Lab assay of single mutants.
Amino acid sequence: TEEFVRLWREAVRHNQTLHWNGTDFIPGDEWAEEFARREEEKL
């Protein structure tokens, strides 16, 4: 979602874990980066 992408970019900028829907998205984590890339492509 647009909100997820916005929060993810913020988390990456501050190198912080994003807690989203009970899942931890960690900047630099391969799975999280791939998920975020797919979400961005949907926008």
Rank of each mutant, 00 (worst) to 15 (best):
H19N: 11
L18I: 05
R13F: 13
K42D: 03
R9I: 12
Q16A: 12
T23L: 15
E39N: 06
F35R: 04
R13Y: 12
E3R: 07
K42I: 07
T1I: 14
D24Y: 12
E41C: 09
P27W: 02
G22T: 02
R6G: 05
E34Q: 12
E2R: 14
E2Q: 13
E2M: 14
E40Q: 12
W31K: 09
E40T: 11
E40C: 07
H14Q: 15
F35Q: 05
W8K: 00
N15C: 09
E34A: 14
L18D: 01
A11F: 04
R9P: 03
I26D: 07
T23I: 15
K42G: 06
N15G: 14
W20Y: 12
E10A: 05
E41Y: 10
E10V: 04
E34C: 15
H14F: 13
L43P: 03
T23W: 15
E10G: 01
H14P: 00
E30L: 14
H19M: 06
R38N: 10
W20H: 04
Q16W: 12
E39P: 03
L7V: 04
T1N: 12
N15E: 06
A11Q: 01
F35D: 00
N15D: 08
E39D: 02
R13E: 14
V5P: 00
R6F: 11
D29R: 03
T1C: 15
E40Y: 12
R9H: 15
R6S: 08
H14W: 12
E30M: 12
E41K: 12
E39Y: 13
F25D: 01
E34F: 05
E3P: 01
G28P: 03
E34L: 09
F35W: 11
H19V: 09
A11E: 02
R38G: 09
L18Y: 01
Q16T: 14
V5F: 06
F35H: 09
N15Y: 05
H19K: 09
H19D: 03
T1Y: 11
F25S: 01
I26A: 13
R38T: 10
A11W: 05
E3M: 10
W8A: 00
P27M: 02
L7M: 09
R9F: 12
F25G: 01
A32Y: 03
E41G: 09
G28K: 03
E34N: 13
A32L: 04
W8S: 00
L7F: 05
R9Q: 14
G22K: 05
E33L: 07
T23P: 00
N21T: 02
F4C: 04
T17G: 05
T23K: 15
